[in-house]
Nucleic acid binder design. Structure first.
Lengths: 359, 359
DNA sequence: GCAAAAATTTGAATCGATCCAAGAAAAATG
DNA sequence: CATTTTTCTTGGATCGATTCAAATTTTTGC
């Protein structure tokens, strides 16, 4: 009855508590952030007043401005947010990042820049101390935008070459060689490559000309690894069909159709991602071709799903979790320098590869 | 050479730009946030100065304090952060939350409160407009802490009864009945329950006494559903063993050991989570018992992994994605009221259940 | 009981922006 | 050219806290 008008009560601020308790701002602040330096009696009184007035505790917004550090790292991508929870590669990577963040108590802010207009705004307004960027597609725009924030950031899976930014990647050439050698040693001589894109968004067969002018160095290097090794086994790589896809079902299927339409069918497929490899296994099996009896397949990435497929996928495994962990540490322990790390990869032999069929 | 001492240059502020460009800070601010109201000539000049001085754009920290809204929703749990990317249930839920956030352009901040001290701090200092709480275990402490922030929040999978907070849950009784009826109709009469915990962290067989004093209503309701239905089929539920586990491998295995140690082995297992059901399938198969020929199993949750197991899991599916979506909307469109929603569940019949074996 | 030392408390300054009422400049009108 | 309108610009107030040097109070020592 005698209480003040309810209405949309403006939230209680620390200053209100201070006034009500008859102490200065400074003391009121100390009661919450450094209670040990406040006399017990005063501390209790202030706390009691805060409780009575329904004070929610120091607002992080205010504190943040003063403190400067958010204590959270942003993870950005051009995919929708659900990508982080649905894509197997992203999930494993995030687990690594999480681990590092858990250890230091930092939070994780997921930032999506799926549509162009919001991309800029979301990156610009994210409350984070630094960024980890998943540079899948449209990576360069994401990098440019992030650079403007002038916060520490690391690019993962960077598709293009830029020495001025911190990045963690894998040795794609070595991975390519490992995959190709494994198949060649099984006696395979007729290959096909299911490739990631070399430049702009396009799908279809790739000409040597396009390979030479590749923008995405990751794709280029994996292919280089494949071909270097195959050449060593006497394979005429100019005859190996390369089909670039967008790393999803539709274009990968189209690639398979195209590859298997010709007369000289490959006995081995080099896929630049586990995703594509898994799609290929399914496609082939459905077509009545046996993996690995008729066609062998090697993937690239080493996502956990690969172990569960039928048959389980032979692949080039990246140390995904470790990459995530390191990326997080680069941000958390940022020292102002540009760091570039290249991680090793490993051939994981499972059941999707076997001896070449006798023709 | 003639440049100012580099050192640890204090970041450039909007005020610095304003001074350098010879305009007021108000105008400088407008150049970035409402460029259309600034005369073109002035706008370009300020932008040029900003560019030249290496200004990173308005700092979100400052903007935030003024604006009040963070434009991000926090998702909290007492598990480590990696839980969000590794647990199948969480992943599907997060996909739903992501969807809603993507649609409105909001970000997601992951907040873990894995260890007690940091729990408080992480919840208190998270920069979010509201929280979605995964109340798996220790949910009540998480809720209490969050309540103090006086921000909108929704509890998911809330294990205990509290009418004063917003929550989204499922009809556990109905789910329990569905599962039990399905098995009973297959002729099963000897059951065992693999249960979630009823109260404090403990594992082991549960007495009727403990069921009666259950703290976690979710567990209690699922069990009630099971038993109501079984009674209807003439099963003496007082003889049905109930083993509570912590929903992970070790205690679930222990439960199975205990259940199958006795003379009267069950022909059907009612598991309160898919996780436990999946562990049970594996355990039984390894023991040489066939699922469903020897033992039928029904899970609860409806995580995607259930469709991939061997045999695929029959389960009570929750509309997980939809729950996530709704939870996010509750925060995004918060209107100051407490909302409580109960979602329906669905029996998904796959291959882990079949006719009771003839004894 | 008094000075010196230790423990508390104070309040102005600061963090980095946005907002808005009022004033100034430019453009339009007669 | 004077006046009215319209368009920009200005600078103080504000968002909600923390910090730190200086002032004050309490303790300690003799």
């Amino acid at each position: 009855m005698a209480s003040p008008i309810e209405g949309h009560a403006r939230p209680i601020r620390l200053a209100d508590i201070a006034k009500a308790a008859g102490v200065s701002h400074g003391t009121a602040s100390n009661v919450f952030s450094r209670p040990e330096i406040v006399r017990a009696e005063v501390r209790e009184r202030v706390k009691a007043v805060a409780e009575a007035m329904g004070y929610a505790g120091p607002d992080p917004k205010g504190r943040l401005l003063r403190a400067g550090k958010v204590n959270a790292i942003g993870v950005g991508t051009t995919e929708p947010l659900s990508y982080f929870f649905e894509d197997p590669f992203a999930r494993v990577m995030m687990a690594g990042i999480s681990e590092a963040c858990d250890a230091t108590g930092a939070g994780i802010a997921l930032v999506s820049a799926a549509n162009q207009e919001k991309l800029a705004w979301n990156i610009q307004s994210a409350l984070v101390d630094g960024f980890i960027l998943f540079c899948i597609e449209g990576g360069s725009r994401l990098v440019d935008l992030t650079r403007e924030r002038r916060l520490p950031f690391v690019a993962l899976e960077l598709g293009f070459h830029d020495e001025t930014i911190s990045a963690i990647g894998v040795d794609n050439v070595a991975g390519g060689r490992l995959a190709a050698r494994h198949l060649a040693e099984f006696g395979h001589r007729r290959f096909a490559v299911l490739s990631l894109t070399f430049g702009e968004d396009r799908t279809g067969f790739v000409t040597p000309e396009m390979v030479r002018s590749a923008i995405y160095t990751g794709t280029r290097d994996r292919l280089a690894g494949y071909f270097e090794e195959l050449s060593g086994f006497g394979v005429d790589t100019t005859k190996v069909p390369i089909f670039e896809t967008e790393n999803e079902e539709k274009s990968t299927r189209a690639g398979l159709e195209a590859i298997f339409a010709g007369g000289e069918r490959p006995t081995a497929i080099l896929a630049m991602s586990d995703r594509m490899a898994l799609i290929a296994i399914e496609w082939l099996t459905r077509r009545g071709l046996k993996v690995p009896e008729d066609v062998s397949i090697v993937g690239f990435d080493g996502v956990p799903d690969g172990a569960l497929s039928d048959p389980p996928l032979t692949t080039i495994a990246q140390p995904i979790t470790e990459i995530g962990r390191r990326a997080a540490h680069m941000i958390l322990d940022f020292d102002g320098t540009v760091r570039r790390e290249t991680m090793g990869v490993e051939l994981v032999v499972r059941a999707s590869t076997g001896p070449a069929p006798r023709t």
